[in-house]
Amino acid sequence: MVHQVLFIVFGLICVAGAINLLLQRHPINSALSLVVVMASLALIYLLLGAEFVAAIQVIVYAGAIMVLFVFVIMLLNAGEEERTRGSRVALILGVPGVIILAATVGWLLVTGSGQLGSVTIASSDFGETHAIARLLFKDFLLPFEITSVLILIAIMGAVVLGKRES
């Protein structure tokens, strides 16, 4: 019961933060709303029993990545976003689109909830570092290793596109 109440509270905060992120016109306000989203997501992970993921979420996303975001916004001295004709068209088309999509998915989840099985946590160490490490370095070893190529490409892309043209 407490779990459900907490889930609803943090879920609502998360969605409100995400909507606020979109509505804010100054990038720094959007970045700070993103902190709210990340932190409430971390709490939802915690409610689901994934302690390790929750901690990582706070350290990496709400911590490191957000600091980077804020630094970049400050350094670039980014101004307020402008409303153009294009963005107005996007708003007119986008908002109903999002509502339709959200309604469809919501309806599907509500009607299809009978088909969703319940998950029983088999091992006592579920969500702990040990269990995650076993998944990461055994079953998901290949995806884990191949991610290094992905990160390498991302770094290379930043270097290539950011380099000053000689």
Binding site: L142, P143, I146, V149, L150, I153, A154, G157, V160, L161
Partner: peptide, 15 residues
């Protein structure tokens, strides 16, 4: 794994 491979191929083509 498909998702990660898809991202590798996509991101390199974006760049």
């Amino acid at each position: 794994l498909i998702f990660i491979a898809l991202e590798i191929s996509s991101i390199s083509t974006y760049i």
